[in-house]
Nucleic acid binder design. Structure first.
Lengths: 256, 256
DNA sequence: GTTAATCGTAAACGGTGTAAACTCTCGTCG
DNA sequence: CGACGAGAGTTTACACCGTTTACGATTAAC
């Protein structure tokens, strides 16, 4: 949990911080009911008038970015928790637990998911400059895949076999990914991560947006199928039966 | 091209039809510039006042549905054209051409794509009762995969091996898929289709929404990678090198 | 040629994001 | 302590949005 009572901050600054927290809280309450997030409604929920919010965000988009960023941060925490419920030595289980939790969260909080996802991805590279490089679900996922690789040592593509533009993207990624502690010859792992992230995000988006047979969504069979098809890529083919039961346990739980 | 001048229609009815066409045209012009589609702007662009539009759609959502439906229809036509540019005997080439065209169109018309995609999928099961069961990109894609199967005869999952809920979904699909002319024991093909559609839609959404390294998007390498990884599922592993050059040719073309 | 459906208008209501000017409450400094 | 100035909030106002209502004009039909 971040900043309890940072004494280096003046009273006004602390008050301002807490107002930011209130803004996010009010926004998320509204999102729990309606898919539309309006600046005026947020202000009203906080007992303020709309123009007052302009002391905290420059415009509506910045409000959305702020909320999206904080949602991502908070959700990532729950994904990490799901992983931490398993043995640290069970990297595959941890990865699968986090991804399943991601899927369950998305289905249970479609509006929050939409605000993080449908956003043009700028995602608050501004406003609150603190904690910006931390959190973000992407970083967690890289970490988890990295752990699987360290424990199971699956084959990763040789970086020189990859297309030029991909290589450039791996050596200096513009997308959240913890990459610094990876030797150049191991950077192919990041490509694997991007492949996996694409698969995962792909199914989940389709499910949340309802672009799939409702019964298939409800059952989670397509989600499992995607994971099953991806498993061999990270050396988890043999372990898949065990992981599948692990997934199905989590699918039963009420999402959210 | 649909209905030239259907003489069974009275003059008023024809006028009304053409107004619908105008509405869609105006909407698409607006979408080409701004991501937001407003009923008032559509009316203004047509030289009408906003309330007049309520003679044609019951509310804003219905306008969106109408436009989304027509966009899907029109876009599907261009996908089909891309396929038809190839030899009818080359089902794999046709499939790949259509999917690549789909991707290029989505990237070139992100707002139109978003309106079709971000929509709760109800997608105008109303308003215009004509041509409703036709078109829809989904149907085209099922057809193309079906052709590949007929020509190449790849292995499809036995329907009885699939989870119950999936089987139910295949026997009576709620999602656009041409399925009637498929024997029960061949219905596993529909599952393959759903898998492929999930993969395709997944990458494209990520690319359009910008949730990927811009350089990777620009190059299309992740798109190609997804197709390459899916190819074996429909028996196209050996043919993939040829298909890949086919894709790359299309990627060069300006999207839109 | 009258009638009635159709298509359009203007006016209005409540909602939105946003800008400007103003007020009040503080923390700071002389 | 008292003045000052920054900060946080208000009110007012504007332009835009979806939507409803009441009212004209056109036009097809009897």
């Amino acid at each position: 949990m971040p900043h309890l009572v940072d004494p280096t901050l003046t009273r006004r600054e602390r008050q301002r911080e807490s107002t930011y927290v209130d803004i996010v809280a009010a926004s998320r309450e509204l999102l729990a009911e309606s898919p539309e997030l309006s600046l005026r409604a947020v202000a009203a929920k906080m007992g303020m008038t709309a123009p007052a919010l302009y002391r905290y965000v420059a415009n509506y988009q910045e409000l959305v970015d702020l909320v999206a960023f904080e949602i991502d941060k908070a959700a990532t925490l729950t994904f990490a928790e799901a992983a931490d419920a398993l043995d640290p030595d069970d990297a595959p289980g941890r990865l699968v637990a986090a991804t399943t939790e991601f899927r369950q969260w998305a289905l249970g909080n479609p509006h929050e998911f939409a605000i993080v996802f449908a956003n043009p991805v700028a995602e608050a590279a501004c406003v609150r400059r603190d904690l910006l490089t931390l959190a973000s679900s992407g970083l967690l996922m890289t970490d988890l895949i990295h752990d699987v690789w360290r424990q199971r040592g699956f084959a990763i593509p040789a970086i020189d076999d990859l297309p030029d533009v991909v290589r450039a993207s791996l050596e200096d990624p513009l997308i959240p990914a913890k990459v610094e502690d990876l030797a150049r010859e191991d950077r192919g792992l990041v490509w694997v991560y991007m492949q996996g992230w694409t698969q995962l995000y792909g199914v989940v988006v389709l499910e949340v947006m309802g672009h799939m047979d409702p019964r298939v969504i409800e059952s989670g069979e397509m989600f499992i199928d995607v994971i099953r098809r991806f498993a061999p890529t990270i050396g988890l083919a043999e372990e898949m039966p065990r992981l599948e039961t692990l997934i199905r346990e989590r699918l039963g739980r009420a999402p959210g």
